[in-house]
Design a protein around this nucleic acid. Structure first.
Lengths: 159, 159
DNA sequence: TATTGTTATACTCTATAACTATA
DNA sequence: TATAGTTATAGAGTATAACAATA
């Protein structure tokens, strides 16, 4: 982002390596890969499956629609990932009796065991990453992320 | 990241919405989308094509191999994206006489015109995003990104 | 008529490796 | 034998919309 500042009065080009969206993409990809090595390489879960599993871990059950909102997945991704998780024996899927259009997910004991094996590994990696920052810096980074997210969504919705 | 701290002594679950890699992925996706609306929606370029075009803008020419390193693309992505850019008339590709295995890219006048139309729009969006942060915060965020990238690569290379 | 979720289809993207040519 | 780049192939992932069931 320093590079985005003009280094000379006549400089009008874009320095890709200093372009904020590019740098953020590279960082997010690297971080994502470092976590995917756990859920994908070691436990053979897709990103979508991992997100649903992770979201299910700290609640008794979760409707499909909430899984979509919570995991930033569309309804097709939720449908397919939840079918895979069910086929693998990690979750159950049942109809909501109150409104039978809704499907509710629940972890099986096997799914909970998987969750409890993955989560500490994922958290250890997160902790290692965040050791790059002091407690204050983490908080500032976190707040900056929130503000950047709000602005990027404002842009995206503008088209 | 605050949420990653234990909220109770017995809490061992993972709060997906507070999990740093998840939040970073969501942010990067939103930022990426806000820029892709320009190069993809308005100018029909793929992400790979855009990166090569952007990297070419502030230099006379660029070898294919350097494009790969600079744009974080593998040699196949460079090969295909550069062929598309050539077919669209935005770049030329010629052999390096010194070593005819190397291919060197150069912007055509049409390509430069495209570059000069896209870059101000992309920079305007970048600037809007970064207005979320003060100058100091930008610098701290930038340094934090560098440190996080180093650590995520250390993790990823560990496997 | 609107909503939830599934299925179908085509399309894009990616990963692997075989291949060409140059060195 | 090693390197730069291309091509081929198959697999994964994605997007669109048509569809069924329920409300």
């Amino acid at each position: 982002m320093e590079g985005a500042q003009k280094t000379a009065g006549t400089e009008s080009g874009l320095d890709l390596l200093a372009f904020f969206p590019y740098r953020l993409a590279i960082l997010a990809e690297a971080v994502s890969e470092s976590i995917a090595q756990i859920y994908a390489d070691r436990f053979d879960l897709s990103r979508q499956e991992w997100r649903i599993l992770a979201a299910l871990g700290n609640r008794a059950e979760m409707p499909a629609k909430e899984a979509g909102r919570l995991c930033a997945l569309d309804k097709m991704q939720v449908s397919r990932a939840s079918q895979s998780l069910e086929a693998a024996g990690y979750i159950t899927r049942r109809e909501d009796r109150a409104d039978r259009r809704n499907i509710v997910f629940e972890l099986t004991p096997v799914g909970r065991t998987l969750y409890e094996r993955i989560v500490p590994l994922a958290q250890a990696r997160e902790a290692y990453l965040l050791e790059a920052l002091t407690a204050d810096e983490r908080q500032e980074f976190s707040q900056a992320m929130d503000r950047l997210l709000a602005r990027s969504r404002a842009l995206a919705s503008r088209g």
